[in-house]
Design a protein around this nucleic acid. Structure first.
Lengths: 199, 199
DNA sequence: ACATTTGCTTAACAGTGTTAAATTATTTAC
DNA sequence: GTAAATAATTTAACACTGTTAAGCAAATGT
């Protein structure tokens, strides 16, 4: 009797339902709000049922992370195929990477650990503004244009911040990599930005 | 009688003790492990006492974030004073920013929401490697040197990743900024890196 | 000496992840 | 068709979490 397979199919379906429910909750109220009981509510079961499909909460998160990498890879592949020259492919893929992060914001957060909690923090702290100012002031000193384009200053600041924060993130994630070579990368990148600071 | 002031001083001290205890716990076992009761244990009180010094747990985190920004500002200031030319000051400050992130790793995590959970995840997922490979392959195609310097490829990949991830982080944190200008910054930065991909 | 305030703790509530036991439903065997 | 065995699901519980209210004990004011 083929009922075994039907049951197998149903089990596979509720497994997917769990993942969908989890992602739905996160989309509605953020990662912090995700709980086993809420997932159970959404799939109309009780919490312990989930443990027959996933070892624990971490297991669900790992599966969603995997899902994220699969989607990202597909998007990169598609972007690559839209161009001929390697440099265009490269740019296209990184743009696709960018798009992915916003299209699948929750997955990207999970994949790269971007915590959103500092959203209002930024506005509330004069200290944060001070650090921005001391750097922006120096950037202005390097600018030859008169009058100074404040928008350009802001963009340059963001560029700096991106490179440095990005490299730091990598160093946090990839502990194995030695610090000195990354520091070299940083220094080179900085010199480059500074050199062309007037666009 | 001056006992009022003595008591005031003691209260100020336990307030600092709470912050120190919190940071100590985080240094030992990470942010996830921080709890009100553990802090209370460390300062040899019970949990509710903390609520006479801070509104809630978030209040403690906010205060530590503030502390982080204060320290960062001081380090940037010191770095700036060590140079004469603006370009040197700029480079020095960003290097100081870099150093701060590692010297005060826990504070930096709190300030910019860098979650460390993806540490082992990276190694465990072939999907993550695939995304790395498809990009690195294209980078190699752009390289003119023969034989190809794999270390340089790796560095270029990290540079790309840094810029993109950094910009994405900014966009997550600063929702107000409009997406199109940041996308311009990204595209320009990418073209720049690609142009000078052979160092 | 009595009343009042202060400092601190215990107890409790609602929530979390997780596990074991109890219960219900379904299938199997005769 | 009824009884036994198995599977599916729930309830109950444990050890945590942040947070609040009630209670107690010691210091202070009068």
């Amino acid at each position: 009797m083929g009922s075994k397979e039907r049951i197998q199919r149903l089990k596979e379906e509720t497994r997917l339902n769990i993942l969908d429910a989890a992602l739905e909750i996160v989309k509605e109220d953020g990662w912090q709000s995700l709980s086993m009981r809420k997932i159970a509510d959404k799939i109309e079961y009780t919490a312990p049922i989930i443990y027959e499909y996933f070892a624990n909460k971490e297991g669900i998160l790992l599966e969603l992370t995997r899902k994220g990498y699969i989607i990202l890879f597909q998007e990169l592949k598609a972007a690559k195929l839209q161009h001929e020259l390697p440099q265009d492919q490269l740019e296209g893929m990184w743009m696709a990477y960018w798009d992915f992060a916003f299209k699948y914001k929750e997955l990207y957060q999970l994949m790269y650990g971007v915590d959103m909690s500092c959203c209002e923090v930024m506005k509330a702290f004069p200290e944060a503004e001070a650090t921005t100012n001391i750097i922006c002031d120096t950037i202005k000193e390097l600018m030859t244009a008169d009058p100074i384009n404040d928008d350009l200053v802001c963009r340059k600041y963001f560029t700096f911040w991106s490179v440095v924060h990005g490299l730091i993130s990598i160093n946090f994630v990839r502990k194995g990599t030695d610090n000195t070579t990354n520091q070299h990368i940083l220094r080179d990148a900085l010199k480059g930005i500074i050199k062309y600071i007037n666009d």
